[in-house]
Amino acid sequence: MEILKVSGVNKAFGGLKALHDVNLAVEEGMVHAIIGPNGAGKSTLLNCFVGRLIPDTGTVMFGDTSLIGLKAHKINQAGVSRVFQTPEIFSDLTLLENVMIPTMARRDGEFALHAFKRLDRDAEIHDKSMHMLEDVGLAEKKDMIAASLSRGDKRRLELAMCLVQDPKLLLLDEPTAGMSRADTNNTIDLLKRIGDRGITKVVIEHDMHVVFSLADKVSVLAQGTVICEGKPQEIKGDPRVQEAYLGGAHL
């Protein structure tokens, strides 16, 4: 079953055609990677999924819901979470608080005026958040301020914040950008582990190592359009991909 269906999406910035008739279908439970050279329109496409950009034409359907024109928080409440290229976390708050916020957002909706409840008495939120922190291996650091974490740990925390919401679809924008090899491998392991939960993932990635170790299906984007789609092994050998993405060099 398709969880995300993109059809005929066009987006231009002034004279620059960033996306040109993009069609894409993401199957439920799959890890779908979107790769492509710089400027191919990967981030533009992702921004069309989360309400940051509105395509000029075309549709983006998430299940039966159209995501076009919806505000970011509505899209999240519909079940789409997003990991950013640079981790977006609540850096002045503790790790536990960071995870509690999305947990509450999922339970209480986009706004709840709980001004007299004590947060430290809310066992449900606390336990769920602590479980999540344990899952990503940050439980001992729960009282640290998030700003003091390493890049890799910030990524873990951001993933925890997305996963605790049990999203139907998780969007990952270059999840290992700027990471050391060790951090990258840790992140891959973590992403593989959360694959067991059956969360559909769309990954935008530069790092081929990451793509080939994670993805079930790959779409190659070049000059704003999907030039090729298939299993990682098929993509590897496709001459069009090597031409567009690698400038003809062999992988």
Binding site: H73, F84, D92, E97, I101, D120
Partner: peptide
């Protein structure tokens, strides 16, 4: 209010509104 879920949401506003939006909070 400082100790409430509402209070922590207010601190979230101060820290990162972008993340707040993408966390499903208005």
């Amino acid at each position: 209010i400082f100790r409430s879920p509402f209070g922590i949401m207010l601190r979230a506003v101060k820290t990162n509104q972008n993340r707040m939006n993408y966390t499903g909070l208005n």
